[in-house]
Amino acid sequence: MVKEIERAGITVVHCCSIVPISLTVGANRIVPTVAIPHPFGDPAKTVAEERALRRQLVERALQALATPVSGQQVFS
């Protein structure tokens, strides 16, 4: 799905927990996330900490969208 969206000319960032899969499939902008059942969260943290973590990951995704890349790049 990432590739077809990018093929259409839309800038896309793939946020995922298993980066090797994303690299194999061929996403260009990749942001590693926390864990498979909760990519944008961590139930072990307090609600406030979890929100801050989620905000930070989304900020990183926006950073990736705003960064020129020539090939695959992992933003960690």
């Binding site: 799905m1 990432v2 590739k3 077809e4 969206i5 800038t11 995922c16 927990s17 990519p39």
Partner: peptide, 26 residues
Amino acid sequence: NARRFGQEIAHRLLSARVQAVILTST
């Protein structure tokens, strides 16, 4: 199927003038 979903979604996003996508996977 994933390719087809991606193509159809991209088409709809283009019509809506979306420039950027965050795609999340588990």
